[in-house]
């Protein structure tokens, strides 16, 4: 009875916002006693096998998997935190702010490395670098840029070739794009010079990595900056058209994180899902995403899970940063 009420309530809450999801899938099709609602920024294709593994272990559970952008996740979840059980997002800054604001449930007894978890309520489960992705055909016969500096030089050398052929995240819309941009800007001044060069050539702005990869493959753009490398590599069908470059100067590496809503009606089930997500990492067949890697061992710095991530979410800082970014990119 209680569950039924929760299901109705969560359906009502979700429908009440009249939300247009990028994707909405239910695993399995048939009705089940309990429904776990997962709000995620990760494409369903990457999560289907993980959820199916979870269903196999918990047969009486139905998982509703809702996909939307990272910024949208933040808005929707803050509006009705009781309507969702699990929140998965690649925007670490937004996630940590959710946890900091007390919207995430603390889970005891999960033995997880300290650098990959925050306050026992936010758990990282992938390590994904931002990449430069190029169209192979456009770079045929010339050397591939290895660093941002290389890219700037290539763009400056042949501005007419790249006019309107560049793409990156619209950081005003995409949470993870904003995270990559701010971390890049923190790390190197090169970011701003690249943005200025890209802006001067009329860069196209995207909401999502998937769209950028599609346009790259189709040849509508030839270079995309700060694409999620994992998405690009996963598109093995496009491997002939696109090439993924992990910049040699520095990589901005993000960890995808999951949290359980503090207002979830089924904390045990949600906790079991987090546990499954963590365990699934070691199972390559079930886990198509790049599993968590210790940054210290990988030799590449990873964005740290710390409250400092909230710095660029500050209204004043964000306004200043976006002003600067708009000035550089949209000229």
């Amino acid at each position: 009875m209680c569950y039924l009420f929760l299901v109705i309530f969560s359906l009502w809450a979700a429908s009440g916002t009249a939300q247009d999801w990028e994707d909405e899938q239910v695993f399995p099709e048939e009705q089940a006693a309990r429904v776990l609602t997962v709000l995620s920024s990760t494409d369903t294709s990457f999560f289907a096998s993980i959820i199916e593994g979870f269903i196999a272990r918990n047969p009486s559970v139905q998982v509703r998997y809702l996909v939307t952008s990272t910024a949208e996740i933040d808005t929707v979840f803050r509006a009705s935190p009781a309507a969702f059980d699990i929140v998965i997002s690649s925007a670490m800054d937004l996630q940590i702010k959710l946890a900091n604001d007390g919207l995430a449930l603390e889970i005891e007894g999960l033995n997880y490395p300290n650098w990959a978890a925050w306050r026992r309520s936010l758990f990282a489960f992938t390590t994904e670098p931002a990449a430069i992705v190029i169209n192979r055909a456009a770079f045929a016969g010339q050397s591939v840029p290895e660093t941002r500096q290389d890219l700037i030089q290539v763009l400056r050398a042949q501005p007419e070739a790249f006019e309107d052929k560049l793409g990156t995240y619209d950081v005003r819309v995409s949470g993870v794009g904003y995270l990559f941009a701010t971390q890049d800007a923190r790390t190197s001044e090169t970011y701003w010079r690249l943005m200025e060069v890209m802006g001067s050539l009329g860069t196209r702005l995207y909401c999502c990595s998937g769209d950028m990869i599609e346009d790259l493959a189709a040849g509508r753009i030839t270079v995309a900056y700060n694409v999620l490398g994992s998405y690009a590599i996963a598109r093995t069908d496009l491997a002939d058209q696109i090439e993924v470059i992990l910049p040699a100067d520095f990589q901005t590496t993000m960890m995808r994180t999951a949290l359980v809503s503090a207002q979830t009606g089924q904390p045990e089930l949600a906790t079991a899902f987090i546990r499954h997500l963590i365990d699934a990492q070691s199972n390559e067949d079930m886990f198509p995403l790049p599993p968590l890697q210790d940054a210290a061992k990988a030799g590449q710095p990873t964005i740290t899970l710390e409250p400092a991530l909230m710095t660029y979410l500050d209204a004043l800082k964000k306004r200043t940063f976006l002003d600067e970014w708009v000035n550089a990119v949209i000229q």
């Binding site: 007390g102 740290t304 710390e306 409250p307 400092a308 909230m310 710095t311 500050d314």
Partner: peptide, 23 residues
């Protein structure tokens, strides 16, 4: 008024117990 405070303003508040920060 612009308050372009540094990343370190919050970074320095990082603790082993992942204390929450408000400002």
């Amino acid at each position: 008024v612009e308050v372009d405070f540094p990343y370190a303003s919050f970074s320095m508040l990082n603790t082993d117990s992942d204390d929450r920060v408000f400002y």
